[in-house]
Every structure is written in C-alpha cells, then in structure tokens.
Design a protein around this nucleic acid. Sequence first.
DNA 1: AGATGCATGTAATAGGTTACATGATTCC
DNA 2: GGAATCATGTAACCTATTACATGCATCT
Lengths: 184, 184
Amino acid sequence: MAQKNRLKYILLGLLNTKNQTGYDLTKSFDSDIGEFWNANHSQIYPLLKRMEAAQLISHRLITVGQKLQKKEYAITAKGREQFMDWLATPAEMDGAHDEFLLKLFFVDDPHSELLPPMIRTQLGYHEAKLAHLKKQFAQKFPNQNQILTSYGHALVLRHAIERETGYRDWLQTIMRDLARFEDE
Amino acid sequence: MAQKNRLKYILLGLLNTKNQTGYDLTKSFDSDIGEFWNANHSQIYPLLKRMEAAQLISHRLITVGQKLQKKEYAITAKGREQFMDWLATPAEMDGAHDEFLLKLFFVDDPHSELLPPMIRTQLGYHEAKLAHLKKQFAQKFPNQNQILTSYGHALVLRHAIERETGYRDWLQTIMRDLARFEDE
DNA sequence: AGATGCATGTAATAGGTTACATGATTCC
DNA sequence: GGAATCATGTAACCTATTACATGCATCT
C-alpha cells in the first residue's frame, strides 16, 4: 500500500508524546494504536534511521546492564513542526486505512481548534458516502428477488450502509460533545 | 500490503460470473466491488497474464471496429476449482482488508452451505474483538478525567467499539435470516 | 476534427510482510 | 542454566500506486 508515509507521522506522533526506543514504538502496535494500524519492527527500524537522517528525530544511547545499548529516540523541533503540519492537513480519504482516525488519535485536547473542522469535514464526507451507498442499494436491489440471486453482494452493501450510518452517528455525537465543551 | 494474492481470487470470482476483458474488470473496482476493494489496471493486466500462464484463465481475441483487439478472459476449470477452494477456506483476519466481506460478496445463493459456518466463525471473532475492545476502554479510560486528557484516543477506541457492535449486529441479523430461509 | 472513453501495456517507486540473523537481560 | 523477553538490524519478496506510453472507436 503505497500510502503517503503515514507510518512516519505515527512515529513522530508517538515520539511527540514521549521519548522511546524502536522496540517501544514497535510494541505500540500491539496495544493502543494497534487497534487500527499495523507495523513490524523490520519496517520501523530502517524508517527511524531515515527520519534521523532527515533530522526529524534524534537518538541518545542508553546502556542497560553490562553491554546492551538502547537507542532512545526523541522528536526534534523540525519533526514536531512536520507532525503538526500533517495533523492540521485535511485527512485524505483514499486507501484502505482511515487517515482521519489516525489524526484524531493524536488530538489529546478536547478544546483543540483542530477538532471542529476535522469533524465537520468527515461528517460531510461520510454523509455523502452514505447517500451514495443507499442509492446504489436501491438501484441494484429494487426488490427481494435481486437480493436472493446476489445475496452476498446485497449483504456486503447493507453492511457498508450500516457501517457508514454508524460512522455518521459517531461523528454527530462528537459534534454535540464539542458544543457542550464550548459552553463550559 | 503483502497479503495473500487476494486480487487473484477477486478476478477469478468476477470471471466466474461472466467473461470479461481486463478493462471490464478494472471498471468493477469503480462500482460494486469498489465499495470495499481497490485495484488499478496496472496491477490487473500483468496479473491476468500470470494467471493465464498458470492456466487459471484463458482468453480469446475479439476484434472491435477495424483494428482494436480486445482480450476477453474466461475462467478455466482449474481456475474455478481454485476459486471455490479459496471461498470455502476460513477468512484470515490479518491485514487492513476484511477478507470475509470479500468472500461473502461472491456467495450468490442464500441457501449455500458455506454461509452458516462462515457467519458463525465471523460472529465468534467479532464478539471476541468487541469484548477485548470494551476491556481496553475500561482499562484505559476508567473515568472522565482520562478521557479529557487523551480525547482523540478515547474517541477512536469508542469508534472501534461501535464499529464492532454494528458488525456483530449485522452478522446476527444474517443468522436470523438464514434460519428463516431454512424454514421455507 | 476533436473530445471522451475504450483498451492494453510497462517502469519506477513506495509500502508492507516474512524470514533470516544476532546477542543481551531478566526472571524463575 | 534455561526460557522468555528485550533489543536491533538486514534481506528477499510481494503488493500497490503513480507515471509513462500508445493507439483505436465512438459520438458530437
């Protein structure tokens, strides 16, 4: 999936939270961020090197025990700048992965100015997609007969519709929450 | 995404429905199957050649107008066999793509024997995942304070929970429908 | 005659998985 | 002393995207 360097931003985002080793970063994909993104250490270690060469991160050596040398990476000012730029850029709705969820994950503060436009843009996108899917279903499956001769296709389309409905509802709930935060 | 040759099975599945050209197959990813899978012609054309070399498909030339030669591909007995084997194999729950949805898409007949075990297996998987996610949320966000200091993370986790809930409900609805079909 | 769509291909590049490879530390 | 985990790296391979490249057919 020749996406757009998303792993780079994930690593920057994680390093923005706290300094970590490549091993620590790898473990993040087993727990929290692993719910919706994956990466192996064989992808992470070389990328960290390239990111350091680009001066987005730096490392210091930590000696553990007698011999073992850990590399603890830290984000640089340049890296933080690039990360913030990425966070403020509207999520692209292309590939299999949902870049919006990825960005949202890194917005810690419910009062962040980034949130309202992010949510609104996503809501527009998913409402349009939902409308499109419903139209598709109506066109392809006007009656029960079509459903029974392309059963799997109908089920999959219905699933897509329900998924988009859930996505929309979730976004609307966030919008309401945000409005409530503003009153406080 | 070094997945497991899923595009091959999609092409076999589409060719199993009707004979088509590479161009036709490419267009499928703009409409029906495009709701949940993507492929470009630059990936499809070479793959069709490899599949033909492996004798899973064959082609005949159709002349359109004066000069233009179309290649209309057809699935072979060997190709159909491989496709059916894949369809009957439990979906793998690894990558970013949902292989189950892909297989389900190709099951036309609501009375297919494949359906009950497929649905049951998926239901088990998604119930386990839902339980896991709920546990994660309870652990990471025991109170409102944690939510307000990792707001995005909490939202994303909640989204995952709602998505899995919707998935489970959808599967349960299918189970009920299947039981109804058996009575008829 | 020109625009749009049909039709097929290759090349370069990027992203991602699996396997190979090594060694130290910590816990039991 | 042995097992599990920590820790880092490379190599081979596969998958996917973007760009390059070409030419015909149909419709207006």
